[in-house]
């Protein structure tokens, strides 16, 4: 670690503009990881399942939105207008609803029957669901990189020196912040949010209080899928390319982010996502992208060994 910092600091100081530039890309990347990490952390918080299929639900979001973009008659290169963004919003809402349905179905088929089984069993069905989703997307669109149309405005704002921030980056970061704030408020204030927190604390006690456990868990999966769907569309709009196996890598990174922030903890997942995005951007920018996975999964191992509750700790009492 120390050697890395020694290597890193003089290089960062020699070109502060580049340092700032990488910061911008890291935050925008991190915002997307944060959206996926939220889904992981919510599901873990409530049923202590690492839902490995979540990364693929995220990819599915991008895949489902592509034909809708065609159906709405949107074509790449058309000038930015209110109509375009309204159409994108409608598409996003449809995608979120579809994915919510898919994720509730996944929960019903693959996880609910195993709720009282040993914990390894649902974990394995989660991996299986991940393969099924990937396989379905492979059959649907093949293994190509699929071009995702570029609709976000292309302008940039200078940050001094050669560094600049694109409208794209700002939009992605802003959307992620909005989702995190809305979600946190929802869970802290709404009745369903209260039911979710109660179920996370003690399922049996919550049931005795008249909370419908099945419906609450299904709602958690629904909300997780909404975030993943939004993440998928944002990913497509931002990177302009999607592939059927995208969710595997992105899912593992987001999982690391969730563990880093303290799995089960909403704010922790958001901060973890940003952190992983920054680590990835700085590793790609200053060292080599071959080593990026090594850093990120080293962080995962270090956190699991030395601080298994993560940065902010799990806000759910021990059972």
């Amino acid at each position: 670690m120390a050697i890395l910092l020694v290597l890193f600091i003089p290089r960062a100081a020699s070109d502060p503009s580049f340092f700032v530039q990488i910061l911008v890309y890291g935050l925008a990347n991190g915002a997307i990881y944060a959206l996926i990490a939220l889904g992981y952390t919510m599901v873990y918080g409530i049923i202590e399942l690492i839902n490995f299929a979540h990364g693929d639900v995220f990819t599915l979001g991008a895949f489902v939105s592509l034909p809708l973009i065609g159906a709405f008659g949107l074509t790449e290169g058309q000038s930015a207008s209110l109509g375009l963004y309204a159409a994108l919003l409608v598409i996003a809402i449809i995608v979120m609803l579809i994915l919510g349905g898919v994720n509730v179905l996944i929960e019903r088929i693959a996880y609910r029957p195993l709720r009282h089984a040993p914990r390894l069993a649902p974990l394995i069905t989660a991996v299986g669901m991940s393969f099924i989703l990937e396989g379905a997307m492979y059959i649907w669109r093949g293994a190509n990189n699929i071009h995702y149309p570029d609709f976000l405005p292309a302008g940039r704002i200078s940050l001094g020196g050669s560094a600049s921030i694109g409208y794209k980056d700002l939009i992605v970061i802003a959307l992620a912040v909005v989702f995190v704030v809305v979600l946190t408020t929802f869970i802290n204030r709404s009745k369903l949010g209260k039911a979710m927190r109660a179920t996370a604390q003690d399922q049996d006690a919550a049931q005795l209080m008249g909370i419908d456990i099945n419906r609450t868990i299904a709602a958690t999966f629904f909300i997780g899928a909404i975030l993943a769907g939004a993440g998928g569309i944002i990913f497509g709009l931002y990177f302009n390319t999607v592939r059927f196996d995208l969710g595997f890598q992105a899912g593992l990174f987001a999982f690391t982010a969730a563990v880093f922030g303290g799995i089960g903890n909403i704010q922790g997942a958001a901060i973890g996502g940003l952190f992983i995005g920054l680590v990835k951007a700085y590793s790609d920018g200053y060292f080599t992208s071959q080593l990026t996975d090594v850093w990120i999964f080293s962080i995962l191992i270090l956190v699991l060994v030395f601080r298994p509750t993560g940065l902010l700790g799990m806000r759910v009492p021990e059972k």
């Binding site: 990913f235 890598q249 920018g285 080599t288 992208s289």
Partner: peptide
């Protein structure tokens, strides 16, 4: 000059932006 592990990298903007600024 940068060599990418393109299987895990989706973001090439850092490279493009810094090339442009140089």
């Amino acid at each position: 000059r940068q060599d990418f592990d393109t299987k895990s990298t989706n973001d090439f903007r850092g490279f493009l932006q810094s090339s442009k600024s140089l």
